[in-house]
Design a protein around this nucleic acid. Structure first.
Lengths: 233, 233
DNA sequence: TGAAATGTGTTACTTATGTCATAAATTTAG
DNA sequence: CTAAATTTATGACATAAGTAACACATTTCA
């Protein structure tokens, strides 16, 4: 991690897009920009919450651990996304960690200033509330999936979400590069299971994976897999 | 469900406690009170969102279905709790259902008025934001548990949460009466598994269940069970 | 640039939990 | 107060998905 000169254009992150224009200079005066290399940890689960981050460039994952070995990837973040907002609330330590998946430039806002921002920018607070509501919906959907959907469906769902969130490269690959283990941790399963199911999906011509480049060949099939365990089938 | 005369004291629900005193008459003019009998559905997953509910009296569950048969209980609600707030956001249908677990009196606020309330009562919006942040933390913790914690731990966790949320009756029972199936749906498992593990916990003198009256005899043991799968063990 | 660390491919084995089947008991409703 | 519906109890059985164990490939960084 290193402190970098602020390169922010003040119009691409969740905060700058939604707060009062008059507040931008205050943000400018209070923010700090950092750069994290691939694999560096942006903040650690269990550490005291110091503030909120906005991802100015790069991709990151937010994850929560179980024991020493296992993790669940909660979500992936891209340019413009807010991270660390899970640290709000009564709890004073981060409930999750965030790790850079590639070189990331982040904008850091300390907690006290962020809370002031919320008090001053009531429209931003309202928008943030709606954002939380949507995250909560997504979280509960995934909770239900973990409880009832078979792994195969959860892996199919992971590919669909990744495509929706990161889009495609010009070559048609899902525009994020993840290890199998990261996919497994997102789907709530193990590396080996991902391996088996990816082999299966490849043989059925539903996806192709060349190294880390994933292509979805048959999106409908993935959706079918997600549902087939529902209702008898 | 029947419309009832408003009996609300305007000081016990999440909304009345936190909004501007000046706003109370507006709430009074816009709210509707309903009564639901045990088993009645307060709102249905998939139906258009019409508004937000506050539980004035009674207990309810919020649940999300999987196929025709299976469900996951997302949370339980008691007097004073807000329900239906998951309907906020872009989505215009409820992502979950709510069902009365006993006779419930609820206060209903239609969506348009609720949104106005948020715009006017910025402190309430801030508090609601913090509430969402905490729900999101809890949701993600349970998500991780479903992915990695063995059923036994999840059932133990369910008992601990229920005790914390509903407290104890004078006799020392957890102050909520649930079917085994509801416990199973909360822990993300099946009736049979709950049955087996409850038998086991009873034999180890960790809990007792007499009909629907649950007593926790050894809270420490429950916590131990939750952790024992973490880190080797 | 070369050693160490991390990620990938693959098989065989194990087990935790779900599914099925069925009976008795309890609760709810007509 | 009886019938229907739901909830509980319990065993046998099935299987999805995790664990273990290697060899090989690729990335990282000293």
């Amino acid at each position: 991690m290193k402190l970098v000169k602020t390169t922010c254009d003040q119009q691409s992150c969740f905060l700058c897009k939604r707060c009062l224009k008059e507040w931008i200079p205050a943000i400018e005066a209070n923010k700090k920009s950092y750069q994290f290399k691939k694999g560096e940890i942006i903040f650690h689960e269990g550490e005291p919450v110091t503030g909120i981050y906005f991802l100015y460039d790069g991709k990151a994952k937010v994850h929560k651990k179980w024991g020493e070995e296992k993790e669940l990837n909660i979500r992936f973040a891209r340019k413009g996304d807010i991270i660390g907002h899970r640290g709000l609330g009564k709890e004073t330590t981060y409930p999750v960690s965030a790790t850079a998946l590639e070189t990331c430039t982040v904008c850091f806002i300390d907690l006290a200033f962020f809370k002031t921002t919320l008090k001053v920018n009531t429209d931003f607070t309202y928008d943030l509330l709606m954002f939380y509501a949507e995250e909560l919906q997504e979280s509960e959907k995934r909770m239900r999936n973990l409880a009832h959907m078979p792994v195969k469906g959860r892996i199919a769902y992971a590919f669909l979400i990744l495509k929706e969130k990161f889009g495609l490269t010009p070559e048609g690959f899902i525009n994020i590069s993840l290890t199998r283990q990261d996919i497994a941790s997102y789907a709530g399963t193990t590396y080996e299971t991902v391996f088996r199911i990816v082999t299966e999906l490849t043989q059925s011509n539903i996806i192709t994976i060349d190294n880390k480049d994933i292509t979805i060949l048959d999106e409908e099939a993935l959706r079918r897999i997600m549902q087939e365990a529902e209702n008898g089938a």
